[in-house]
């Protein structure tokens, strides 16, 4: 029995691509791409070397942040960011709920499904910053453009995930509600809402967190918030103020994550 197997070679079968030819082609292609990509990155090493000094100053500024000298700008930027975050999340989620329901194949009729999916695709395709540029051009500088940007992005994000959730529900429960003779709103309320609600709340909190982080960015293109303050501080090489702002952002994100995990536990 054991002699029959003696001397038999064993090699691990390939994990992903079975054919040896395609495997070499794929790996070789990736290697060539990497070599090309790295070779076309032009770097001014002298400039980078000079930059190390500034990098060190930033690290120092981060460790010894200066909240005081620009506190007025910082506090106003933060207030704009936070209010923008709250309002845009609320409005975005409220609008995302009907669109998300409309984009779920198992509850919506075809034309409505296509319409809602189109809205979602439109909202998800472009970076918030690009959307913000357009809203600033239309609505003028300031947090209102930022609010619209974030609300618009929230719609795509929330509606897509909500639609996927609704498509994944346990159909038997919805079936049972339908069998009682329930109307469409009753079906949503009894058959679907209980199944998707905890995750919807969790996702809304997550989106709140994302919106705050994004609100720090769109200020760079003029849509209000802490981003504008940060941009100015970095432009003036005031790394200690910049460090203070970044620390505040990190702290707020940490606080948001910490509290949202509590809320999530409480909802379930």
């Amino acid at each position: 029995m054991s002699t029959a197997a003696a001397g038999r070679r064993w090699r691990r079968p390939p994990v992903l691509i079975q054919s040896r030819r395609t495997r070499w082609l794929v790996y070789g292609g990736l290697l060539i791409y990497l070599a090309l990509a790295i070779s076309t990155v032009e770097v001014n090493w002298l400039r980078v070397y000079e930059g190390l000094d500034r990098g060190w100053r930033f690290a120092q500024g981060f460790l010894a942040p200066d909240f005081v000298s620009r506190w007025k700008d910082i506090s106003q930027g933060l207030a704009e960011s936070l209010t923008m975050t709250v309002t845009s999340t609320v409005v975005g989620v409220l609008l995302a709920v009907p669109i998300g329901i409309g984009a779920a194949r198992n509850v919506a009729p075809m034309p409505i499904y296509l319409f809602c999916r189109a809205i979602i695709a439109l909202s998800r395709t472009f970076q918030e910053v690009i959307v913000a540029i357009f809203f600033v051009a239309m609505f003028g500088f300031g947090p209102f453009a930022g609010f619209l940007t974030l609300a618009f992005a929230t719609i795509g994000f929330m509606a897509k995930l909500l639609a996927e959730d609704i498509e994944d529900i346990d159909e038997a429960q919805a079936e049972a509600v339908r069998a009682t003779g329930a109307s469409f709103p009753q079906l949503i309320n009894y058959g679907i809402q209980p199944q998707v609600m905890p995750r919807l709340i969790g996702l809304s909190l997550y989106r709140l967190d994302i919106n705050f982080r994004e609100s720090a960015v769109i200020g760079i293109v003029g849509a209000g918030g802490i981003g504008a303050t940060l941009n100015t501080a970095i432009d003036r090489y005031e790394y200690d103020s910049a460090g203070a702002i970044l620390l505040l952002i990190i702290l707020i994100v940490m606080a948001a994550e910490y509290s949202s995990s509590h809320v999530r536990g409480w909802v379930q």
Binding site: M1, S2, A6, W10
Partner: peptide
């Protein structure tokens, strides 16, 4: 490897 093949057979 031999031992492993023998054991799998066993």
């Amino acid at each position: 490897v031999d031992k492993a093949f023998a054991l799998l057979e066993r």
